[in-house]
Design a protein around this nucleic acid. Structure first.
Lengths: 332, 332
DNA sequence: CTGTTAGCGCTTTCAA
DNA sequence: TTGAAAGCGCTAACAG
């Protein structure tokens, strides 16, 4: 392993290591001529700064962590894009972690990130218990919640899921639905709970009883989960309309129902959530609730970096976007 | 920033820092009693090993880099899953980089990874020029190509794209297509060139001239690119059949053609590539070429870690999978 | 089996 | 504006 360090560069440029370091980190403090000589030497030697050494010395790295619930979900992919675009200009690295909605795995991820001494963490928490995050924060790592509303002394960027649930369900009711099924993942996932609450609210607003909503809970919020949900409907009796907590679920429901000969929207109306790109290309274009996904990632990252750069002056803020109803054929 | 170091742990457990390090890295060399005391102290103090320090000292980190062409493409998401599953058991971190098919961005990504002193890099190269990678390798960073066949002294895990192209085109020909359009990204992308070559081969095997294939090149291999391609077909004259270099393109083509009133497969047959999950849920379920995507990521990572763990004894190998034709409605 | 010790490569005062 | 020097926290000999 060939290792070109700052020392060799210094020797070659005829300066001290400290000066090379300055060229790297505060070029404005170095005389132009000297700077040029150093840059020349860097290029000739193919020197690449050792991140570990600089992290160790400086106490913080040039990386941030992004912990998502499901890397396979286009929703989070879109968030990640927003993150990447902001971060890449700054020559930072993003360490992407997937919690798979498991608090356990989330904790393991946080430990790895803590080891790596990331500057900050963007996270959509899987756990109700945020003590692992609190420990991180106690160590001085900035944390911003993504797609999760947090009050008080921490930044968060979220979308109003209660409003989204209300929007979706209100739409189904307006369309004449009487028996509505709500398909979602474990209620411990905050998004599921909120969207469900929104659904209830729409029911009440329409003068219905809460019991008019049938819950179908599946272990995973993806197409496979949707399939399971559809099977349950098929055996327990079909509802008039189905509201899925995300589009992946809806896609799975759509597929399974279609295969069973149930027509959407004629027999059952269907609406998803997230408005991922593929929903509009689905067999029956899916109605959905649109969220400013890319913005979520982008703004969260800006907030995070702002906090990292100026922990003292930074004022925590909670940003809440409003979702939007997109009606397509599946409930049109 | 509270910082609990190995020293505090040592003091608390009544041992030396070296012993704590041993508990962390080679627990079997420490007497059970001592080990327990140290582990107790670690827990009580909430100690987390400083990765930078250990990386600096040990000369290598506990992270690997994954550089993909497009994080938004489910194909790479699936690869990433395979990577993650292998890596996460080992408490390693994955630094995910997106080159966006740009050699420039790829180079920047590699620099960040070099700085982070990753143990190895998994990459689907965007550039023909792999000198940036060679420089990495010269520094002792293991490299494994993913979805890219490399001969000689480096590992690679790929799928036979020429065979895939032949499979897809052969199928369209067998179905009676005469004028076939091939929609792809820049020919500099190896996958595109190979799949095209396969298409030519099928043409020849069927006794057709190479000119029977119309090339439509779009700047981006996603749904938007597909839309552009469809517009060009619409204005230049429709082919009998369309072979898209990936499913995202095919989905875009499908949507744009449908909106223009062109029926798939009656007016135009359509086949994609990758067989991502969403293709089967598309408005017209898409025929495609299936690849062992998850396996690609998994095996590539195993190869990479094997090389990292034993650079001397490691024998480079090039693994080539065979793709598989999946016929659905769009060309059925 | 455990302690001692010498750095890994860099940043950052402090002087010059 | 630049140089000298003291570590950041940890690991890996080596000695005991």
């Amino acid at each position: 392993m060939v290792t070109v360090g700052i020392k060799e560069v210094a020797r070659r440029a005829g300066v001290s290591p400290g000066t090379v370091s300055n060229v790297l980190n505060r070029p404005e403090r170095v005389a132009p001529g000297t700077r040029e000589r150093v840059e020349q030497a860097i290029k000739e030697l193919g020197f690449v700064r050792n991140g570990s050494a600089s992290t160790l010395r400086a106490g913080q790295s040039r990386a941030i962590g992004l912990v998502v619930l499901d890397v396979g979900n286009p929703f989070f992919v879109e968030v990640a894009r927003g993150v990447e675009d902001v971060v890449s200009d700054r020559d930072h690295a993003v360490i992407l972690c997937n919690s798979g909605e498991s608090p356990d795995k989330e904790l393991r991820n946080l430990r790895v990130l803590a080891e790596q001494r990331v500057r900050g963490v963007l996270i959509t928490p899987a756990a109700d218990d945020t003590s692992g995050l609190q420990r991180l924060r106690d160590r001085g790592v900035a944390v911003v919640f993504v797609d999760h509303y947090a009050s008080g002394d921490v930044c968060s960027v979220a979308v109003d899921d209660v409003a989204g649930g209300e929007l979706a369900t209100g739409h189904l009711l307006a369309r004449g639905a009487r028996r509505i099924a709500f398909v979602s993942g474990p209620p411990a996932i905050r998004q599921c709970g909120d969207r469900r609450r929104g659904a209830q609210r729409a029911l009440e607003a329409a003068g219905r009883r809460a019991g008019d909503l049938t819950d179908i809970v599946v272990p995973e919020m993806n197409a496979h989960g949707g399939r399971l949900a559809a099977e349950r409907m098929l055996s327990d009796g079909l509802p008039d309309a189905v509201f899925c907590a995300n589009d992946l679920l809806a896609l799975g429901v759509l597929r399974a129902l279609s295969q069973a000969g149930v027509r959407v929207p004629d027999d059952v109306a269907l609406i998803g959530y997230d408005d991922i790109e593929f929903t509009s290309a689905a067999a029956v274009p899916l109605s959905s609730i649109r969220q400013p996904t890319y913005q979520l990632g982008k703004i969260a990252t800006e907030l995070l970096l702002e906090e990292c750069d100026d922990p003292g002056g930074h004022a925590h803020q909670q940003i809440m976007f409003q979702p939007e109803l997109v009606v397509r054929e599946s409930s049109g």
